[in-house]
Write a protein that binds this DNA or RNA. Structure first.
Lengths: 269, 269
DNA sequence: TGAGATATTCTCATAGTGAGATTGATAGGG
DNA sequence: CCCTATCAATCTCACTATGAGAATATCTCA
């Protein structure tokens, strides 16, 4: 909140104590599935510090002084649009991830970053924004993220700038977890979709194969997860098989019972 | 992150554009159980704006210019200590809740607030901090929170300042949800505790009675949730009954299978 | 001492899950 | 055009987890 007793009038005077420089930015972890693997949208920094390193798309929040005041989710959507060149407000699912504010996370000054997490069906190739020398969908596997604290394994080609490896790791964990109890997976596929396409999303994000029969039973038995369109795919799969029935997303916000990741009995101890 | 291409050197010059005034604060939702009901720590504002209204304890984050740089969780712990008069770093569970930054949430200027959520066993009465006229543990039920968007029912005595009703509502939902799949409930009781005390935590936070026998079976069957001390309570309950066996928190970070809230089949649709 | 409350354990019907097998449609290569 | 691998969709079966109710022993208080 906004306590600071005994000094309540200082805002009018711009007391320097309140304005120790803190910058507020948004960074966006955008996940999509391409060619059967999970990708994240990254930009290559064109300027120091950390020039040449890859980073999450981000930018300053417009505060409302000399520029128009901007809400945090709007800033995230803007930043995303600057790299993809599209207005993604409609097509992507966007949610706040967490806020990162360790004092030395940016060498220039104190920066508080509000991270957002976006999920999108397959999107076009990005084009670098003004301050980036490159932008690309990068396979998450290629980044050598370590399980523990969001570091990267030595030898990884694309080094992420600042604490972005950690932010990305948090975003991935959030995504994996939300697949369990929300219909989020439907945000990764275009409608209408088949149960197999949906299963592929789960397998890709969780990184492990699922039992096709049980998955099918489960998806259709959870109320409101998917809704039949009554149609079937134009043709069978590329390597044969019957034509799949097609579905669209249902009206459930929460999956009950949840669709749990296999092999979690020995969860974090 | 910290993009802003083409202007990379401006920090050294304190370019006013980057310093459209954004203040960063932390607000803390602190929950505890007193007299069998869920309470939240609130302070009464001693100064305008919103003078006289009740608010979550909060304060500015020390940025690191003229003052010592302070990490976000440290700011939350400090703010909590200012109201409770104790160093709670050891005793409370603290986690980040979310960040609130709607442009007009504070009438004075642009304020981004990083909210934290704290869980504590029964704590002493608070004393008002420097900028508050009062501080108290307030029963959550008395605040007339509405289900939807964190508003308060008309006629509620204690009106919460700014968007704090919403922040509190988000904190409560997080707490209710985390009881399901984490051993968080053990943070609300002092060790050693009985299964009944733990059940009381669930009943209080969820606001509904649970089946004592099934709860008992469940708690003891989830690996790592609780660990027996081998002791039993000094005496039976205040109204009779055998002396309960005592436990301490186990080593699990996640409950598997989860302990789900009853009656959620018809979840959010 | 008796009544009521409570901790703990059991029973039993039902729901949900993992593993494997079956059926039948379809694509692609000989 | 036929054969076979592939795959969608179902089904079976054993096992686990859950909700509801009840039984039993222990304890407090009047």
């Amino acid at each position: 909140m906004t306590e600071q007793p005994g000094r309540d009038g200082f805002f009018a005077e711009y007391d320097p104590r309140a304005f120790d420089p803190i910058a507020v930015t948004v960074d966006v972890v955008t996940l999509t599935i391409r060619d059967g693997s999970l990708h994240v949208l990254l930009v290559q920094r064109g300027l120091p510090p950390q020039q040449g390193r890859w980073a999450l798309p981000g930018g300053f929040v417009r505060a409302g002084g000399s520029t128009a005041a901007e809400d945090l989710p709007d800033a995230a959507i803007r930043v995303l649009g600057e790299e993809t060149g599209e207005d993604l407000g409609e097509r992507v699912h966007l949610e706040q991830l967490a806020t990162y504010g360790t004092p030395d996370r940016d060498p220039r000054m104190r920066v508080i970053s509000v991270a957002y997490l976006a999920f999108a069906p397959e999107l076009p190739d990005p084009r670098p924004g003004r301050d980036a020398s490159d932008a690309a969908w990068v396979p998450v596997d290629s980044l050598g993220l370590t399980a523990g604290h969001g570091g990267q394994r030595p030898g990884t080609t694309r080094k992420l700038a600042f604490d972005h490896a950690r932010i990305l790791a948090d975003g991935l964990e959030r995504a994996r977890s939300k697949l369990e109890y929300t219909p989020l997976a439907t945000s990764f596929v275009a409608e209408p979709f088949s149960v197999s396409e949906l299963r592929m999303v789960y397998e890709t994000v969780w990184g492990e194969p699922l039992h096709a029969g049980n998955f099918h039973r489960k998806v259709l038995s959870v109320p409101g997860f998917v809704e039949s369109t009554g149609e079937v795919a134009e043709s069978g799969g590329p390597r044969g098989g019957p034509r799949a029935r097609l579905y669209r997303r249902g009206d459930a916000q929460l999956l009950h019972p949840a669709l749990l990741r296999p092999g979690r009995e020995d969860a974090v101890r």
